[in-house]
Design a binder for these strands. Structure first.
Length: 396
DNA sequence: ATCCAGTGTGCGGTTGTTGA
DNA sequence: TCAACAACCGCACACTGGAT
């Protein structure tokens, strides 16, 4: 056995008394072990391990991992197929969170411990958890490529369980009354934006991209065919994320009249004219709009932490309460999997308990009253009772 | 054996906030 | 007003365990 080992690789005793192992890589070049060993046996075991790696095609040339990490990461981001917005985000992470920590490292030089330290440093510096998670995910994705495609390192050093997850809290939901309160408080030019955002549930970028010809007043629906991306250099139109993203959304009659007026009054002229533009004809941008949103929110006494995007959720919630099935909700929201829709079901399950509580109050008070008169003939009014009641509850 | 709904995970994408 | 940064959302794929 010992002889066999020496058939492949070399072991020698160094002047220090320690043992050095060397082996020929697939290219024939002799490579020394990165460390020396206490005993000949240890050196020999190490050689056996290397040989197995080569036979199994698991072997990775240690020299390949010596490329500078920053160069590798930058190339990764540059060459990856990504949307412009995502690429900008990733470049930001590389620049701000990778460079300071890994600026001098090689790809192979970053180990589990390095990653752990890096991550806890970020958290200690009060970088937000979602951002840390995103940076971690990017790092892991880069190393996945390094391990699986480029095969320049053997193992992904990102192995912290759960570090790549971001768990967002449940978002608040507005009542119809609250929605109209903000809409009323908003300057007339953007009133319809609030109502549409709620009752048709498109995303902000989709509203910003909405053209006159995407609005069909006769059919009472809007077509969502594209959205506006905001990039460093300006804005850009882009198609939806998925086919499910392209959709028609029916809108309640109650806002059609106002929508017609809005278009006549504020929309850009022409079929391709944008439905929502600024007073000077500028594009709708989040940071411009935000000021108005905050102001209107305050005037309408809506809690500070309510986001514009929450209107979308509120509308969806409303659609659910109006009897839409999960499938129908998905179509309205432009979701292509039930996954996202399930979030709302979870929310509704909680709501269900308050419904049960309300029922309970009714039961108790009914049982306290003497038997009689008010019979079951209007049992169906219960449905209305809920909607009204729950809407009132969340108003607070 | 295979189908399939439900779920976990990885990753890409969008919206919200801040500071110069 | 803009860029940079942070927070949040959701798709696709893979896995799993029960049903057929």
């Amino acid at each position: 056995m010992a002889n066999n080992r020496r058939d492949w690789g070399r072991i020698r005793r160094l002047p220090s008394g320690r043992w050095q192992a060397r082996y020929p890589g697939p290219d024939g070049a002799l490579r020394p072990a990165p460390v020396t060993f206490e005993t000949r046996k240890q050196a020999s075991d190490w050689l056996a391990e290397k040989r197995t790696e080569i036979i199994r095609d698991d072997w990775v040339d240690p020299d390949l991992g010596k490329v500078p990490f920053m160069a590798y990461a930058s190339t990764w981001v540059a060459e990856r197929k990504l949307s412009d917005t995502t690429r900008e985000r990733y470049e930001g992470i590389v620049r701000n969170h990778f460079a300071p920590a890994f600026g001098d490292s090689t790809v192979a030089g970053i180990k589990e411990a390095t990653v752990r330290r890096w991550r806890s440093d970020l958290l200690a510096r009060k970088v937000g958890e979602p951002t840390v998670a995103k940076a971690y995910r990017l790092l892991r994705a880069i190393y996945n490529t390094a391990v699986e495609e480029d095969r320049i390192v053997k193992r992904n050093p990102c192995r912290i369980k759960g570090a790549g997850e971001d768990n967002s809290a449940e978002r608040p939901v507005l009542t119809i009354r609250q929605v109209y309160a903000v809409a009323d408080a908003m300057q007339p030019r953007y009133r319809m934006l609030i109502l549409l955002a709620t009752f048709a549930s498109p995303r902000f970028g989709e509203l910003a991209a909405l053209r006159r010809r995407d609005v069909d007043l006769e059919r009472r629906e809007i077509r969502v065919l594209r959205s506006q991306a905001e990039l460093r250099g300006g804005t850009k139109w882009k198609g939806p994320k998925s086919e499910a993203g392209k959709r028609r959304i029916a809108i309640p009659k109650a806002i059609v009249g106002e929508l017609r007026e809005h278009i006549a009054r504020y929309a850009e002229p022409g079929a391709d004219g944008l439905v929502f533009i600024g007073p000077q004809g500028g594009r709708l941008r989040r940071h411009n709009f935000r000021r108005l949103w905050v102001k209107a929110k305050k005037a309408a006494q809506i809690p500070d932490d309510v986001h514009f995007h929450d209107l979308r959720h509120s509308g969806n919630e409303l659609a659910a309460e109006s009897g839409a099935t999960t499938r129908e909700l998905m179509a309205r929201m432009g979701h292509s999997t039930t996954r996202a829709a399930l979030r709302y079901q979870r929310a509704r399950r909680e709501r269900d308990h308050s419904i049960a509580d309300a029922m309970n109050r009714n039961i108790e008070s009914a049982r306290r009253r003497p038997q009689g008169k008010r019979a079951r003939k209007r049992g169906r009014r219960r449905g209305e009772g809920h909607a009204g009641g729950t809407a009132g509850n969340t108003a607070a």
